[in-house]
Design a binder for these strands. Structure first.
Lengths: 217, 217
DNA sequence: CCTAACTCGAACACCAGCGTTCTAGTTAGA
DNA sequence: TCTAACTAGAACGCTGGTGTTCGAGTTAGG
């Protein structure tokens, strides 16, 4: 849903009369294209526009009718992916003990990161860094807030910039995804291992490193 | 030195009679090319062969005389860079307390990572992952050995795969380099901050997180 | 000094992907 | 039912990078 809210900036090639809805088949095609692009790029970050159009069962021209080039398409894919991820994470309970909350958050996030790492790689080649960061905004904020709360309760360290703790969190998840893809880490180990190192990394100097809650897989 | 020991596999375009030395000007040009490639790629990972040749003050044809295409050139750049890095790290004392040793190692490594991150990015686009890993072998081994020693002394955790601790180490350094390039982390903060989080991350559950040794900048 | 090694620049063929245009056909939806 | 919206597909020109070839010149080094 809300596949191509390219909206404000420059409307996709096909000009839409203001206040009007796109025709049903058009909307369906746009969805197929974004779907196809997502899975194509997940397989090969260099997939060409032609590949994607074919995978979507759509003419290349049709694709150009809806997206002004590769960058705009990838932007749409990334935007939708992140929006869905954000929705998924909404279901995670981030209240209660910050350490347990972070463990839950990592458990949910990690799967998403693992699944869409190639899409991100594709986006990193095509989109400016600011844009990528902007799209991550809501998710970034979520983590930052939780870390901030943990700092207030004294469970997370305050001797390094908070930004760095956020970076650490994402960095470990992405690293795990890469190791996993390379066969150096078992997928069903990942969540536990990430949580264990991350919680330790966030522990204030002088405090004791918590044991991992290995109760959930 | 030893700029293009393409050696065994397929000799570069220009066939060298076995047992013979290249002519001095040829060796000089090869060096310029690798130098230029290094700095060009550091600036723009997509720099073309033409750009690099021009920056080296050499004809494009000459470049092709020494390297069979982009991949081979980038391989040479990466190989030399990593060899130099390895030499630099040889000067680091990795004996004594594992935590202090790791701090020293991170301090030295981080600068290198920061300086050559773009070269790595370029290599990741052009070279197969196995190759990249192979080139990192000596450096990887160095870290692994130190971590292993720390595990034996009981100062580093053993409840996660050792490989993951190695990944964590590299991951944090690269993340810091990226944050730094994006202006989210001050360069003169990086070493301290990396060491602080890394040492915490390696601390065994139940143990106390060590305070950072902030004595050296 | 003389030869083989090396270099240069321009030209060329080549390729893949991009984005556009045109014609003709199909389909949604008032 | 009738029109405007949408689609297909083939054709085309463009761009930018790659790798090669050629003929002529320069230089290292025995």
């Amino acid at each position: 849903m809300a596949a191509s809210q390219a909206g404000q900036a420059r409307p996709a090639a096909q000009t839409v009369p203001p206040g009007t809805q796109r025709r049903a088949d058009a909307r369906r095609n746009i969805a197929s294209i974004v779907d196809a692009a997502t899975s194509c790029l997940a397989r090969d970050p260099d997939a060409s526009i032609g590949d994607i159009a074919r995978a979507a069962g759509v003419g290349r021209v049709t694709l150009y009718g809806h997206f002004n080039g590769r960058a705009e398409l990838i932007d749409a894919v990334l935007t939708r992916t992140l929006a869905e991820a954000d929705a998924t994470l909404d279901a995670v309970d981030t209240t209660g003990d910050p350490r347990e909350a972070l463990t839950r958050l990592v458990g949910a996030s990690w799967r998403i990161v693992h699944q869409f790492r190639s899409v991100l790689h594709a986006a990193q080649r095509e989109l400016p860094p600011e844009r990528i960061r902007a799209v991550h905004d809501r998710i970034l904020r979520r983590v930052r807030t939780l870390i901030e709360r943990g700092q207030r309760t004294g469970q997370f360290r305050r001797d390094v910039p908070r930004q760095w703790l956020v970076t650490t969190t994402f960095s470990l998840m992405h690293a795990a995804a890469d190791d996993c893809a390379a066969g150096r880490l078992r997928a069903d180990d990942a969540a536990r291992v990430i949580a264990a190192t991350l919680l330790a990394a966030l522990t204030p100097p002088g405090d004791t490193v918590p044991a991992v809650d290995t109760s959930r897989s």
